[in-house]
Design a protein around this nucleic acid. Structure first.
Lengths: 146, 146
DNA sequence: CCTTGACGTGAGACTGTGTATCATCTCGGC
DNA sequence: GCCGAGATGATACACAGTCTCACGTCAAGG
């Protein structure tokens, strides 16, 4: 269950990036988050833990992780920009519309769908983005009641 | 081929909304746009045409159309918020990554995909958002060359 | 161990988007 | 033409994200 945390830090080392205190801090804060988070969330967490972290640094580190494929930016329906940790392979996210928790879904068989879209529109589809919203198992149970 | 413009204005009338000059103006500006646009684009267009339109009004009108299902908000990969006119039925958008033009794609057979996602994660999928990026037919031709 | 250059950092200023406020104006029914 | 509901727009505001630049820190080399 533990031993999950070194992911981000390891990746930094492996990519030949400097392993500085602020970056470690950001990585730790991210790992402490179960669901998606915004830059502001991280800043707040940092303040709560008495870690000194500048806004700019958080944004820069987030961008760094994003470029390394360890983090993905989500556009929530309400227009917020959130981030989620994820594996660097193709996949999609399911976002719980109640608690905000996210899960990854392995690549679904979208090829057929993309082909359809391609022939319908004449576009040459190169990329896509699919976000799913629903209730996570925990919230499902809780909702069924009242 | 013409007679496309009254769409938005007609819809306002049909929905019992007030048909005011600023709303007409916004509707006209939107119809003059082939691709997606941002609120700022509209404001700029309005200024170019010497139409007096307040920022707030543009945002409000955009929101109104959005609620009426005539307009959809897109989150572009670069983080921008854009809008596109669209029919009030379920569909997705294909966005040309070169010229920004968008097309609608009728509902694709996503049900199977959603079921897969559901069983993989245990989530009860309630909604989804699919955006496709690629080259539109015109840009395809131009790119093929050099 | 100290020097040193490159890079990362952080405070704050800045930009741009979207929202709230509120006095004024307009629509459309009488 | 009058009136009330609702729309408008100027301004202020809140907030996200970026930029700048002086300073600090990392890690290689002497």
């Amino acid at each position: 269950m533990a031993a999950e945390q070194p992911n981000l830090i390891n990746a930094l080392e492996g990519a030949g990036e400097r392993l500085t205190a602020p970056r470690r801090a950001v990585a730790t804060l991210i790992d402490a988050r179960a669901a998606h988070f915004t830059a502001a969330d991280l800043l707040e967490d940092a303040r709560a833990r008495r870690l000194s972290l500048g806004r700019a640094t958080v944004f820069r580190t987030l961008e760094l992780f994003n470029e390394m494929g360890l983090l993905e930016r989500l556009d929530l329906p309400n227009g917020e920009h959130a981030y989620v940790v994820c594996a660097p392979r193709h996949h999609h996210h399911v976002i719980c519309s109640r608690c905000g928790r996210t899960s990854e879904v392995a690549d679904l068989g979208l090829e057929g769908v993309l082909d359809d879209a391609s022939s319908q529109t004449g576009y040459q589809i190169e990329d896509h983005r699919l976000e799913l919203y629903g209730l996570c198992p925990a919230c499902r149970g809780r909702t069924g009641g009242s």
